[in-house]
Amino acid sequence: MILDILLTRYNYVVVALLLPVGAYMMIENRNLVKKVIGMNVFQTGIFLFFITAAYREGASPPLVGDGGAGVTYVSPLPHVLILTAIVVGVSLTAVALALIVRIYAQYGTLDERRLREAYADE
């Protein structure tokens, strides 16, 4: 039963792994850059969920030729949505990295604990 799920639904298993791994990285890592990487992993999990949900066995791309009767097409909508979400994710990463550059210039560290010490000194 479990083996069956692992063999046929392995994409969802990966989704279920990526989300907690990303969340754990964001919480547990002391390095700010690694937190941002964790955020990216978390988002990727959700992207994969959308893409997997759109998969249809034996379906063709939604390019309708002549009539197109009797053929199963893949819905292009989830792919388009995720394309948008990826763009949003890239912008977020860019802003996050810009903030990290500023933090490093100010405090000379990217370590969360040392940052807190620098706070206490101010």
Binding site: A23, M26, L32, K35, V36, M39, F42, Q43, I46, F49, F50, A53, P78, A85, L92, V95, A96, L99, I100, R102, I103, Q106, Y107, L115, Y119
Partner: peptide, 29 residues
Amino acid sequence: GRSAVGALKYLLVGTVGASLFLAGIGYAF
């Protein structure tokens, strides 16, 4: 520098929130 740290924290938590919202939309879709 504090404002940059505050903004980064806001960004990380806010993104998780928005991502969960997106996952919710995915389930409904």
